[in-house]
Design a protein around this nucleic acid. Structure first.
Lengths: 344, 344
DNA sequence: CTGAAAGCGCTTACAG
DNA sequence: CTGAAAGCGCTTACAG
């Protein structure tokens, strides 16, 4: 193996081996070395083997920045999610990763913490990496974000919610329908005084609440006193607290729809502490179907959301957009499943 | 506002505005425009204002690839964690993000899924982005990974576990000590036939098990029949199953140490289904102290691990290494806290 | 405080 | 199947 050192052109510490080093080692031009990576079928087998051998021996690592600059393609996908601690979004991220891994895309993940300002800031930073495409959570971006994306003409897909207009690409489910379906399930089970506790109050929570309200109105069962909505982040602890507040405000509740499973866990634990029988005295339902929900005691009635699939399909759609295709289906509804269990 | 169009130099679609566009608009050299970003104090207030105005009006977004190529600094930090679904690592990621955000680093996150091969593959891909530093989980990397990192001389910090040798940088806690401490707690509470159920069998699980074993041996209470170890990923469902298996294999167990909280949740639910009183008939302890553990019924005795801080401190240490400092403390022990609750 | 020139490491047409 | 030349968008010393 030859010495890859060479003269330090600009006094920097020992440089990494470059394509030029590899080419020189083999005695070919850099273009041929380059082609051995990008379009190996255009290089003669003999040279190709020699080049690959040299790359391996010299420990060559392609420089993505250089390639990005030369091709104006970053092979980067930028993803903005509102939370890391919520298992919903880690599932979405897993789906994205799996959809995109084989194609050699690098995924940039930003955690907006449910803040528009943070989202704008993160997007602007990620945009510096020239992402080939962007995956957004929900449809309620700030004007600044929307404008930025339009100006730059970066392919964009929204995840989780379904766009109403025909312009935007979206992959998700109708949070409204799912919220209504869960509420109808409670009504069908015979519950009549159904409360709703919700936190964070993000787009999806609001839509679930809208569905809840409509379903109850349709059954002439709606009572605004049975809703407790707070903007704080969802936690198990908050679920416990909100349940107490609900039962204080509306002691006659016979069921409660929690806007997500975390809140529902807290509600169930609180009932257990207070000796409230589930579902005899109070039925409890959640939303998302986290892995635990099927196993806890009592098992939790909830809506299963196809989070992994949403990530996977959104990334797949985005890849098509990046490739210049124009999918006719701009809106992919992945649906939801009611999981009726012991808690209702 | 002037037209940013210009002649399309190489027939590509309308280019983004570059520093040259900004410079031309203002009537300065690109270097001055560049300095207005990187070292604004070197540019006269008048020009600086004009440049900033032009950047804003033209919607200028710096091109990171170009900067990376010119400076040989990517401002990228590469992070390898074994799982996204485990809340432990999302907390670690949050800490990293917070430590690094202000400095404009871009974080590349790889999910190794507890696989050496996957780790090597992901690292090689991330290395193409020329990360200024790397954050690894644990100390058991493959030889290939270790060599790669040494050859490239990329600053590296290991998270979660503490290095024994004096070479590597590490931020974490002694999983062994924590496992032993939890076991001693059980012994002190009067339990004598303490089982251990564990999944995944990663580095940290093994060390916790070693601590468990040693503590029991020290008390002359160890019995190998009370250990159930399986390599499957940890889930609540698996916790339920392993508990059943344990009680079948060693029905006289009076306590069980679950290698993490997820397993413990499953164990508790299983006990509840089988009518096994906790802690009267069986004490259950977990590890990590996820948010839920304090709230469930019964609340879970567990070890609180400083996950967020590990991420934060590891990233902070890495930043110092990237800046060329040589911290004397190569190993940062962030400790652990025993949370004694109702389940034991 | 400001600028001309060269270079970072790749790839893109275009020839041959 | 292989290569010479130019360019991607920025920054680094070095002058002035």
């Amino acid at each position: 193996m030859s010495n890859s050192g060479g003269t330090e052109r600009n006094g920097r510490a020992r440089r990494r081996t470059t394509l030029a080093d590899v080419a020189k080692e083999v005695g070919v031009s850099t273009m041929t070395a380059s082609r051995a990576i990008t379009r190996p079928e255009l290089v003669s087998p003999v040279l190709r083997a020699a080049i690959e051998k040299a790359m391996h021996e010299l420990g060559y690592v392609p420089n993505r920045a250089a390639r990005a600059l030369a091709t104006a393609k970053s092979h980067v996908i930028s993803v903005l999610v509102p939370s890391f601690s919520n298992a919903v979004f880690t599932d979405v991220l897993a789906g994205i990763q799996d959809a995109v891994d084989a194609d050699g895309f690098q995924v940039l993940i930003g955690n907006t913490r449910y803040s528009d300002a943070e989202e704008e800031k993160l997007l602007n930073i990620q945009l510096q990496s020239n992402p080939d495409g962007v995956l957004l959570t929900g449809l309620n971006q700030s004007d600044a974000v929307r404008r930025r994306l339009e100006t730059l003409k970066v392919p964009t897909v929204s995840m989780m919610d379904l766009a109403e207009d025909g312009h935007r690409y979206s992959v998700g489910l109708s949070q409204y329908d799912a919220g209504a379906a869960l509420t109808r399930h409670l009504i069908e089970r015979g519950y009549r005084r159904i409360g709703f506790i919700a936190a964070q109050l993000d787009e999806r929570t609001i839509k679930r609440g809208d569905g809840y309200r409509q379903a109850l109105r349709d059954a002439a069962l709606y009572d605004a006193n049975r809703e407790i909505l707070v903007p704080d982040p969802s936690t198990v602890a908050l679920g416990a607290e909100l349940l107490s507040r609900l039962l204080k405000a509306a002691p006659d509740c016979d069921a409660v729809f929690c806007c997500n499973d975390d809140l529902a866990y807290g509600a169930i634990y609180q009932c257990q502490r207070q000796g409230i029988a589930i579902p005899q005295r109070l039925a409890v339902a959640g939303f998302n179907d986290l892995p635990q929900s099927a196993w806890m005691v009592p098992s939790l009635t909830t809506i299963r959301t196809p989070r992994y699939d949403i990530g996977f399909e959104a990334a797949t759609l985005l890849k098509r957009l990046i490739n210049g295709e124009e999918p006719s289906l701009k809106r992919i509804d992945l649906g939801y499943t009611l999981m009726a269990r012991e808690s209702t």
